[in-house]
Nucleic acid binder design. Structure first.
Lengths: 215, 215
DNA sequence: GCTCCTAAGTACCGTACGGTACGGTTCGCA
DNA sequence: TGCGAACCGTACCGTACGGTACTTAGGAGC
């Protein structure tokens, strides 16, 4: 069930074999379960049934492993950019609410929280690129979908804004507020998740009041 | 210059002697300069010219020291709650802009970022109360000022909202958006700080559009 | 069958940290 | 002057981690 057989079929555009992907999967699981402190090379090797020597051969050192974990997770989460053809006011609102709810769900996810905590913990170190990686991947992915949605709204004369970045910033802020930080600080996301749906709708209401053309 | 002499005059309501406060000051400096990794008991003792034995006598263990650091810093930052007597629309706007700018400045501060990173890094650990402490102190302090301001605005018939918490959430989100997270992830705050003033005004404009009574 | 390569498993090394113990010094106090 | 408390500086201990080296197993190619 293991060995060179799995080595074929590297993960798309990541240069990783399936075996290495499985190792990263176990590493992510360890990180989610026990935090960075539990993420030791020996622990990963034990959990993934591989040797430490292989870890160092594949990923160089511990930092390389952490980077690979972020890249791997980012490559898994593919944002579906729904390009709705004809867009009316109600359709735009529905799309925005769906986006807001997805955003909250993503930010509240175990792996997302764990990786953000990891990157933030490493951020003090000068040479650490983890924070930059996470920011780039996350914001690019989620920002692209939001940008497309906002642009479609403007094209359909349903939204009015000069600076798309500013409009996106307002949208993000209204949806997320300080919830992300609170979850990163350890507040139980279980309680919060129940209010996500209502929260998303309220936020979109406010956003449309600000940027809707007929609001 | 040291010894029992300084033991008199414990810090107000914190139960700390001046010597212990000075030690915590050095610990905070170490944390700001080098991150959590640099925050070793030996390093603190060396930087503060005290012995490790004293550290353990005063603070119990490392976690107690971290908690004391947060409490100490929180006790230093006293929010000035300005209760403006007569409030007109322009005065309310000025107060809100000032609040927004102060909020951004506080969140971008070295010590704030370092402590938030520390608490977030510890958040995975179950028994860690650091995140809760930071959230409680920070949000209470800053939320009280905002709450008073919003309530004053409503009393003067300048603001309209049902749920003060929701209005505060919108205010916070519009002002901060994802800037706090970006700074926590390591983005250079130097570049961002220059735009704080304009950012605060734009955010308050939006907030008043949402909750202003004549907006 | 022989060799080469990959990788698992384990043992090992250097280091660094949290926490403790001990000697020496200062200062208040009687 | 002697006693005791607080405290500094340092040495010490156990442990845990990152990283390396070695041994062994098993499939691939000739």
């Amino acid at each position: 069930m293991q060995g060179v057989l799995e080595s074929r079929g590297a993960n798309a555009a990541s240069g990783l074999t399936e075996r290495q992907g499985a190792v990263l999967e176990q590493a992510l699981r360890l990180l989610v379960d026990g935090g960075e402190k539990a993420l030791t090379t020996a622990g990963i090797a034990r959990a993934a049934n591989c040797s430490k020597e292989s870890l160092y051969k594949w990923f160089g050192d511990r930092d390389g492993l952490l980077s690979a974990m972020i890249s791997y997770q980012a490559s898994k989460v593919r944002t579906l950019d729904v390009s709705a053809g004809a867009l009316d006011a109600e359709g735009l609102r529905r799309h925005l609410v769906a986006f807001a709810k997805d955003l909250l769900d993503v930010l509240a996810g175990d792996v997302s929280l764990a990786l953000n905590r990891l990157a933030i913990g490493q951020a003090s170190r000068e040479g650490s690129k983890l924070g930059h990686m996470l920011q780039e991947r996350g914001r690019r992915q989620i920002g692209r979908r939001a940008g497309a949605l906002l642009e479609a709204g403007r094209k359909a004369a349903l939204l009015a804004f000069d600076d798309a970045e500013e409009a996106y910033g307002a949208l993000y802020g209204l949806v997320v507020s300080d919830w992300h930080l609170r979850m990163l600080l350890g507040e139980e996301p279980g309680e919060m998740k129940k209010g996500f749906s209502r929260r998303a709708e309220r936020a979109i209401d406010a956003f449309l009041t600000l940027y809707g053309k007929k609001g």
